[in-house]
Design a protein around this nucleic acid. Structure first.
Length: 921
RNA sequence: GGGCGAAUAGCUCAGCUGGUUAGAGCGCCUGUCUUACACACAGGAAGUCGGGGGUUCGAGUCCCUCUUCGCCCA
């Protein structure tokens, strides 16, 4: 036999060394690589990683998100699926362009000084040099993505997909160029989609302006506005047709103050009579609603604010901007105009006003509504399919309350403005031939001459919204539009998408739409929306607040596994994770403590098991198993079942649609973590390992071999259950198990399987129950010891009577109970003569004579308290059983269970009262 | 303004289709350096499940209402 050597593993777990050792081994052996050939015989399980911005650095949100994905992928990889996790980055149009523009600003330049081609080249170089670092950071936290398939939204391959999508939508009649008011960011110099213009609650001012009637300056209408500067572009005042206050005014004209322009008063039901004075100014070029009114009434649409946000007579606005205001910034102009209106007596009043102002999601500049020409995708037909997918159960969203949000958005879907007036991105594949007129030529390939007349052509200056490439990600990364792509055939559609709820509309819903439109299938069957990582004040972690946590700091301090465990164990479904950025020690204690504990369990256990071969479970006869052996094997079965129930099902059972019963199941990572933790810590270490110390301490023998085999098997099972969450430490420990074959990896070992119920004999079940009784006896003795402050080292005498298991069988447990409870135990159904402290447990009753130490009064009080505690629920229970209506209406199995419970409780109560009587009360 | 959600132990949250003496982790209290682990072990205290009403044999769980928070959309 090999002598136990505690020094074979260092006493302290070395995360740095372990991570540096195993990650490269996994990748060298292609553990993470998906194989389309194998996907023919196995179920593929595919996750596409939400591509981080190419310039991003890892923050704790990425950490959370990618850990969840890695847990799922590692679980399915072990479970025998052909697991593929596709990683990559997003070129992030506006965001990346902004970074480089900031560099230029530092050099005193603008992108226009540099010129388009040189600017794009500069961004390309910048990305090539510094981009994608975040992917290396994801490796540092253990992400088992298939790096051989790393994709990039702006790669040549994905550019083909983008162009194909544009052209196809154009061919399908869903792509059009529209002239309308869009959200414009004057700082970024581009239009934004509805989703990119975010609302911020703002306390502004509501200005009430007086417009005098042209024909009777003694009369006037008052209009309310939050943006008085736009009055220069007003073309009408609108009132509600049903508003009797204004009936007489409709059709008359008013004169705009400051520029003297004459505009009509019109009736339009868009006007809300309860807002302000009931009359609103109409500025079609600078407000989306006003634009609609303007179209209905065929009004002119003067543009008085330019692309940079300066007040000018831009378009159709001759004579509208007084020279003193010309060239002022929009906010400076507002001030000036307010002062001028006040001076002119046209300002009736100004009041504080709470409203939502749209800001650019990339630079936070106040967005300016602006009339311009943009490319739009007609979304309704795409949305219909995405809605149907959710309703049919082809798609589910967890937590399910987000399904309502998804439906709500799709039902009110608006056309998608996809053109951006920036330079970094996919150029819109549209050309114009001046000679032939303005008909756009949409083409899959670059063209240099007009296909009709052969004349020169000019490509559209705009680029596409970044999300126009992102929404193709689930299939563009697999080779689409090449229908013969092996990856596409093997791995589309995928399975799960894990992301933050913030991009449900930006990205998730659009991927579903594109998946259906271009490939006829949803790109995944499950959307898992994680919670947000917040600080202790519940604020979102952000760079500007300085309340962030750098995951790599945590990795350095406690290891990647500690980071991962802390996040997974704290991750209720869709629940926010609170972490204290000022106290990493405390925040990551759960992960750090668990890893340390696991390491100690492993270190001790492996030293006792030794390196000699152990028998496989199949070689052990059930009759050779001790009660504890049967118990821990049963606990392992339970743990496996609980882990699986928490995680799965991995996919719809019928392969196509979720049934109502399945739909909300699984993805409970915290429950999975808790089930695995409880098994290895509270069951394997606290009870089984403690109980077999004497069996392992002997030199040799059959019983020692049985204990070694069961112990090694149980720990192997625990490590397999834990590997998806804490891959490094489990791999390091697993490699030392005697049954592990060299050259194998835990990372691709099989997921443990619970035994079928019919494979467990009645004898074995009786053994499990016997060990439960043993545990109760130990707990009972420990309670009394603590109650009477018996010194922890002292050996006490205890009598144990079995009430719930056959007394004969219980004899065998005396030694185990004794060693765990530090007692000399006699198994006896008779009550001891002398006064004793007792504990009445469901399966056993224990007595400790504790000569000279028993305080009869105290013991009576203790037992009486237990009686009282039991009487309440028991009375309620008996009342229920006496209630005829309960007996008549409750299901029989419930009634039966309640009767069993009542019998047990009554017995326990009788026993407790007996003890009290014996003590002489 | 419209919609959705949450309110359970000091903190963060479980409790999934109504039936357990309402659970976990952290924190707290008591004892212990019991030769794997004090980042540990053993024992323990702690909740009228936000307020009110209803449905039911039975409600933390379903319905109504109020209060307070949060999120999304316009």
């Amino acid at each position: 036999m090999t002598s136990p050597d505690l020094n074979s593993l260092p006493p302290q777990y070395d995360a740095q060394a372990t991570e540096a050792e195993w990650y490269p081994r996994w990748t060298e052996h292609g553990v993470f690589v998906g194989d389309p050939a194998r996907a023919k015989t196995r179920e593929p399980y595919v996750i596409v990683m939400p591509p981080p911005n190419v310039t991003a650095v890892l923050h704790v949100g990425h950490g959370l998100n990618n850990t969840v994905q890695d847990v799922l992928i590692r679980w399915r990889r072990m479970a025998g699926d052909e697991a593929l996790w596709v990683p990559g980055t997003d070129h992030a149009g506006i965001a990346t362009q902004n970074v480089v523009e900031k560099q230029l600003t530092a050099e005193g330049l603008t992108r226009f000084d540099v010129g388009r081609d040189a600017f794009v080249e500069r961004v390309r170089t910048f990305v090539a040099q510094t981009g994608g670092e975040i992917l290396n950071q994801l490796k540092a936290i253990g992400s088992s993505a298939d790096w051989t398939r790393t994709a990039y939204t702006f790669s040549p391959e994905l550019s083909v997909a983008v162009r194909e999508a544009f052209v196809r939508l154009h061919e399908d009649g869903l792509m059009y160029k529209g002239h309308r008011v869009i959200h414009w960011c004057p700082r970024c110099g581009t239009s934004l989609s509805d989703e990119e213009a975010e609302f911020t609650e703002t306390t502004g001012k509501l200005y009430h302006l007086r417009y005098a009637l042209a024909d009777d300056p003694t009369q006037s209408v008052v209009v309310a506005t939050t943006r008085p500067e736009t009055m220069l572009g007003d073309v009408a005042v609108a009132v509600n047709p049903d508003d009797e206050r204004y009936t007489a005014f409709v059709g008359k004209d008013v004169i705009l103050p400051l520029n003297g322009v004459r505009i009509p008063i019109i009736a339009d039901s868009y006007t809300d009579p309860t807002f302000g004075s009931g009359a609103v100014k109409i500025t079609p070029a600078h407000d989306a609603n006003d634009f609609e009114v303007g179209k209905r009434h065929a009004l002119s649409m003067p543009v008085i604010i330019d692309a940079e946000g300066f007040v000018r007579e831009v378009d159709d606005a001759a004579g509208r901007v007084p020279s003193t205001l010309n060239g002022l910034d929009r906010f400076a102009a507002r001030k000036a105009i307010v002062a001028m209106l006040e001076a002119a007596g046209a300002m009736v009043k100004v009041e504080p006003h709470q409203h939502n102002v749209r800001h650019c999601y990339r630079c936070d500049t106040v967005v300016e509504p602006r009339l311009s020409d943009q490319w739009f995708v007609r979304m309704q037909p795409l949305a219909d399919k995405a809605l149907a997918a959710l309703r049919s159960g082809e798609l589910r969203i967890l937590p399910d309350r987000w399904e309502a949000v998804y439906v709500n958005w799709l039902e009110g879907i608006r056309d998608w403005n996809i053109s951006r007036q920036i330079w970094w991105g996919h150029r819109i594949p549209v050309w114009y031939c001046e000679a032939c007129g303005n008909t756009p030529i949409v083409s899959r390939i670059d063209i240099t001459a007009c296909p009709t007349c052969g004349g020169p052509v000019r490509q559209d200056d705009d680029v596409l919204d970044t999300w126009f490439s992102s929404w193709l990600w689930p299939f563009s990364t697999l080779g689409w539009p090449d229908q013969n792509s092996i990856d596409l055939k093997a791995f589309y559609p995928g399975d799960v998408l894990v992301t933050a709820p913030e991009i449900l509309f930006f990205w998730v819903a659009r991927m579903v739409m594109s998946g259906y439109w271009f490939l006829g299938k949803a790109p995944f069957h499950t959307v898992y929306l994680t919670g947000t990582v917040r600080d202790m004040q519940h604020r979102k972690m952000s760079k500007s607040l300085g309340n962030g946590i750098d995951p790599l700091d945590v990795v350095r301090l406690y290891g990647a596994d500690a980071l991962r465990w802390t996040m997974v164990a704290g991750l209720g479904l869709g629940v926010d994770v609170m972490l204290d950025h000022t106290d990493l020690d405390k925040s990551f204690a759960p992960g750090r403590n668990f890893c340390t504990k696991l390491w100690n369990i492993g270190r001790f256990l492996l030293s006792r098991v030794g390196s000699d071969a152990v028998q496989p479970m199949s070689a052990l006869s059930a009759s050779a198993l001790a009660a504890g052996d049967a118990w821990i094997l049963e606990r392992l079965d339970v743990a496996i079942a609980e882990c699986e129930a928490a995680l799965g099902p991995a996919r719809p059972a019928n392969g196509a649609t979720w049934t109502d019963a399945e739909r909300g199941r699984g993805m409970r990572l915290a429950e999975y973590a808790e089930a695995a933790r409880r098994f290895v810590w509270n069951e394997l270490a606290d009870w089984y390992l403690e109980s077999i110390k004497p069996r392992l301490a002997v030199e040799s023998g059959v019983d020692r071999e049985v204990a070694r085999a069961v112990l090694a098997h149980a720990f192997d099972g625990a490590l397999r259950l834990l590997q998806p969450m804490i891959p490094f430490i489990t791999e390091a420990l697993w490699q030392h198990l005697p049954q592990t074959t060299s050259g194998q990896f835990l990372a691709q070992a099989s997921w443990p399987r619970a035994r079928a119920a019919h494979d467990i004999s009645d004898d074995e079940r009786a053994h499990v129950q016997l060990f439960e009784a043993t545990r109760q006896a130990v707990q009972g003795i420990r309670q009394i010891r603590a109650e009477y402050n018996v010194s922890p080292g002292a050996i006490v005498a205890a009598t144990v009577s079995a009430t719930g298991v056959p007394a004969g069988h219980f004899e065998s447990q005396a030694n185990v109970i004794g060693s765990l409870a530090r007692a000399t135990v006699s198994v006896n159904n008779a009550h001891p003569d002398e006064a004793a402290a007792s504990a009445v447990m469901p399966l056993v009753t224990v007595h400790l004579p504790l000569a000279g130490m028993i305080d009869v009064g105290k013991e009576i009080a203790r037992l009486t308290a237990e009686v009282t505690q039991l009487e309440g629920p028991l009375n309620a229970l008996e009342g229920r059983l006496a209630n005829e209506k309960f007996i008549a209406k409750a299901p029989p199995e419930i009634i039966a269970a309640e009767r069993v419970k009542a019998t047990e409780w009554r017995a326990r109560l009788v026993s407790l009262r007996e003890k009290i009587t014996q003590l002489g009360a």
